[in-house]
Design a protein around this nucleic acid. Structure first.
Lengths: 239, 239
DNA sequence: CGCTGGATTGACTCGGATCAAGTCGAGTGG
DNA sequence: CCACTCGACTTGATCCGAGTCAATCCAGCG
């Protein structure tokens, strides 16, 4: 199977064969990690950059009162901050959601790649900018969108991201996220999320069942969400 | 007056005299911008990197229904994304809050600095990582903190950031943010924010009046907020 | 087959939004 | 110097979306 990280970067910049080779070498020895394993925890000293090649992961924080906030979902091809090694300690944790194939790129190798391979560096920086845009979209959702809008918005985002990387081309795709996890990402209770999902099902926009998202009426879902995909930056800047 | 951008970067990495000179040249011709002026709008093609030398600004998004979500506050020394020029269009807007002194660094010059001045690049990347950590803290606040906790948390953050850059050393400092602006940042209504501020005043933790934040009982404020400053990454990584 | 963890539903409560009046303070101009 | 205005702040009354608590329900599985 193709390396999803490389595929993703190729979509963001024109990479030479050498660039691709270098990336292939850097991610040549990924490890399989079981579901629900922390890759790194808040407070840990950052180590290598993590790259998710297969499976799902999430960033999260635990609050003093024990509640959890999921900060981002990582799907195949996603990686964590490039310069993470500059910081003294992590301000959040990263955990696998499903079992996953995870490559690591140590700091020295990462710096060398960013230094010597301009096209790769460009693609990686774009990827990071898109992740930041996604965080801003999440802040906006949490702050100003009603719960049904928030849920619809996240589903639009996940669907588009999955489609971008070729995880699906159907209106249906595998979304192995429990309602509990989604609730922690959306800042609501699992009970309420369940009711919202029911509403979305009844409205004929989408259904999320048994780990599979089926978008029935894309127009309606987008309209409910007030979704504008510009923050995913799929249109690239002309050269 | 010292250049607050340079001062900030010096706190994040050891800069040579040459580095400082280069930064001074890059920010040598700042412009004064009146309060409430957009520096750039969502949908615009990104231009140069903005650096706030004096005054306050904010990032924000406007939703389809007309409401506004403030995404971040920028204070003296802060700048926007280094690689912003890679994207085709902005996913948010940036506006001055007060009248401000704003320098711009064009893309070519920025790339040259990042390329040739490793220490400066390091400091800038750290600064960007801290901004990302701040976004994650905001997501966490919006998702999982009650309104009084959220307000207290933001006040802790702004106070610490202001203190970091020497805007204040007193428990009191100038915070020229209207309740309306703060409400848009905190994802609540101005009416409710007003009541929360009253509660905080009555509880003896802090008062925010006439553009000035006075922290009366720091311990109590931190306790209300459940504030953990680790995300501001003030402890730097040992070399 | 019973166990277990997620999903679902109902009843009730409450935090924060909404709607609607003021109040206060800094300018502005007569 | 005072009336006028305008924007920001404050307060009260009421409503509703989402949380809480507590039962099930259900599918996968040892």
């Amino acid at each position: 199977m193709a390396n999803r990280f490389i595929e993703k970067l190729k979509r963001l910049a024109t990479l030479s064969d050498d660039d691709v080779d270098a990336l292939a070498v850097a991610t040549a020895t990924p490890k399989t990690v079981a579901a629900r394993r922390d890759l790194i925890r808040e407070g840990d000293r950052p180590g290598p950059v993590f790259v998710i090649l297969e499976g799902w992961a999430c960033r999260y924080k635990i609050l003093p009162n024990g509640t959890r906030q999921v900060l981002a979902f990582m799907m195949p091809g996603d990686c964590c901050d490039l310069h993470i090694g500059l910081l003294a300690e992590m301000d959040h944790s990263i955990q696998t959601v499903t079992s996953a194939l995870v490559a690591t790129i140590d700091r020295v190798e990462m710096d060398a790649i960013l230094d010597q391979r301009r096209a790769v560096a460009k693609a990686m920086y774009m990827s990071q900018l898109i992740d930041e845009g996604t965080m801003r979209a999440w802040i906006t959702s949490m702050g100003r969108r009603a719960s049904i809008e928030r849920v619809a918005h996240l589903m639009c985002e996940l669907y588009l991201r999955a489609r971008n990387i070729g995880l699906t081309s159907e209106p249906q795709f595998a979304l192995p996220l429990s309602q509990l996890l989604l609730a922690d990402a959306l800042g609501m209770t699992p009970v309420h999320l369940n009711r919202v999902l029911k509403n979305l099902r009844l409205s004929g926009a989408m259904t999320l069942q048994r780990g599979s998202l089926l978008i029935i009426d894309p127009g309606k879902l987008v309209q409910i969400a007030g979704f504008d995909e510009n923050y995913l930056h799929r249109r690239l800047r002309a050269a």
